[in-house]
Design a protein around this nucleic acid. Structure first.
Lengths: 335, 335
DNA sequence: TTGTACGCGTTATCAC
DNA sequence: GTGATAACGCGTACAA
């Protein structure tokens, strides 16, 4: 805040009214006479007065912001979700604060603290830590939280997600039906809920076809982005050759995998089918468009914001699960 | 803010000390005895106390946030810039608030108001409106502002950008050297500074080769994203056929153009060379990788944040201009 | 070293 | 319909 901040006192003086009246013009225009109202409004315009949210929050306790913690702001999936959130918040004139945890626990709790300190109305979060540790106290204190892509069994928190198990199952079933009895899954750490669930779905699909647990090879990805996917794929390629079917925990990782395969020479969608997850826009028009499990991104965000604003402390929590859809593209061609 | 907020008073009571002491533990730990300090710290942990920034800001006037207004949060260029900003802010323990104007004036000024009301330390903005109207009062009031990709002649504001004219000039020169004497430019509204500058650079390149003003056809893009590019390209394709060289104001638009050309059938990089701007990661591994003018994205953000934090009111403004670099790819093949 | 009192900008309550 | 004033939670002199 700069030193010469314009306050409501300045406005009152400029308009030759009391602070109370000036405040009334802002908050209950009905109770103030037409002419005085105009005087005050002119003063506001002239001075460029913008009411301090800090003071307003302090006094009234009504927050005007909502915080969102995303796993990776550079992943279009999350920015599309954010767009859905923002749209819904706009209906109730809330604003959105965004933080990207980059799947780092410390970053996540830093943003959590920051948002609480800012006095947000609530937090929508994609968490790195399935245990929910950083959220327990927050929720006990009565802060509104809605989880994205996750849920905590032992905490009263609403959640919005797709059925990851079903999505992964459809993805891997598709690979098996192409004739593969081995699947390589590029996956992130299991403490991230979606990673664990998508792995379970993949295993389930293999089991459904009578394939044992060793028909799935898991390759760990350090970061859930294209760089992470590329590095993991490079590591895998050092020790493996020949046909292999790939399932990636998300599309960014799939893009990295595809890049690594291409650079390694002789990438063929027939020998190396790839299925990703999220169906972010860019996978559709790559050199070889990637088959992916589509999430209703915008709705995810919209619904999460809706839950946050309409559910209040004490009310029962709600868990919304959308059904994902496998979108088949050239990255998974029949042999 | 929820009803049962934990305040410093609760902490003091829990630790059996006075509020002043509790406050001192937070802000000047040196002056308080080791044992009392630990008592207070335990109480803070136990209650999960998070100091209200609202109150702190109100009292001390030291903001802890910086706001960034981006043209489009779904464009990787801007999220990469945001990453650069955030990195630099972290060094001084500031946090970043992000708003996406989507090139809409009203959204831009809404965020401007919001950030000021939040009491941010300053604002880094990519503006939609080259006139700088919404910034004048803000700056007069002493709010710190750094512009991204733009600058206002008549306002004392620092700025960080690349040399757009030089970048566009290199792009179009490249097209001319491929043998084209006509260039189609997919461009946004000229009130967006980069659009105007890149157009000027394109014109300059043509003039350098003795080509007149009608050697450039400008096609207006409604939104500076792939959808906007695709729609503009469709409109153009309705009335035009055959070889044409394209320069796009940014990569997202170029992606849309490429999509439209592909769908229209018979897209050939030889007959339809395309150059984009920004060099966002995804253009490099599309079916036909797109030649693009590279911006030092991360540095742009880093430098902007640095300027914001180190330049203070009254000091002279600074204008940082980076040199862009043309990265040639398969979308511009020699005939 | 610790406790107390005041002020930051706003809103709400109450007289006028 | 309007004006004065207390209160929100915290930081900081200054007094103890």
């Amino acid at each position: 805040m700069q030193s010469n901040r314009v306050t409501i006192v300045d406005v009152a003086r400029e308009a030759h009214v009391s602070v109370g009246t000036a405040s009334n013009v802002l908050n209950r225009p009905q109770v103030v006479a037409e002419s005085t109202r105009r005087k005050v409004e002119r003063a506001i315009d002239k001075l460029g007065f913008v009411p301090s949210r800090a003071a307003r929050l302090l006094r009234s306790g009504n927050p005007t912001c909502v915080g969102a913690i995303l796993l990776d702001i550079r992943n279009p999936f999350y920015t599309d979700v954010a767009r859905g959130i923002e749209e819904r918040l706009g209906q109730d004139t809330y604003s959105l604060l965004i933080g990207s945890s980059d799947s780092v626990r410390e970053r996540e709790s830093r943003y959590l603290k920051l948002f609480e300190a800012q006095g947000v109305a609530g937090i929508i979060a994609a968490t790195v830590d399935g245990s929910g540790k950083p959220y327990r106290q927050l929720i006990e204190r009565g802060l509104n939280v809605v989880l994205l892509e996750s849920s905590f069994e032992d905490l009263p928190v609403s959640s919005v997600r797709v059925n990851n198990t079903a999505g992964a199952q459809a993805a891997v079933r598709h690979l098996v039906e192409l004739g593969f009895d081995q699947v390589v899954m590029l996956n992130g750490p299991h403490r991230i809920r979606q990673c664990a669930e998508r792995l379970a779905g993949a295993r389930q699909a293999l089991a459904d076809h009578g394939l044992g647990p060793d028909s799935l090879t898991e390759v760990q990805v350090d970061q859930l982005n294209s760089m992470g996917g590329e590095q993991a794929a490079r590591r895998w390629l050092e020790n493996n050759r020949g046909p292999a079917a790939f399932f990636c925990v998300n599309d960014m990782v799939a893009i990295g995998l595809q890049r690594a395969l291409t650079y390694s020479g002789g990438y063929s969608p027939v020998c190396n089918p790839i299925v990703g997850f999220d169906d972010i826009g860019v996978v559709a028009d790559r050199a070889v468009p990637i088959t992916s499990v589509r999430q209703p991104t915008y709705e995810l965000g919209h619904r999460a914001a809706d839950l946050l604003l309409t559910t209040h402390a004490g009310q029962p929590t709600e868990h919304v699960t959308f059904v994902p859809e496998l979108v088949i593209r050239a990255s998974t061609l029949p042999r």
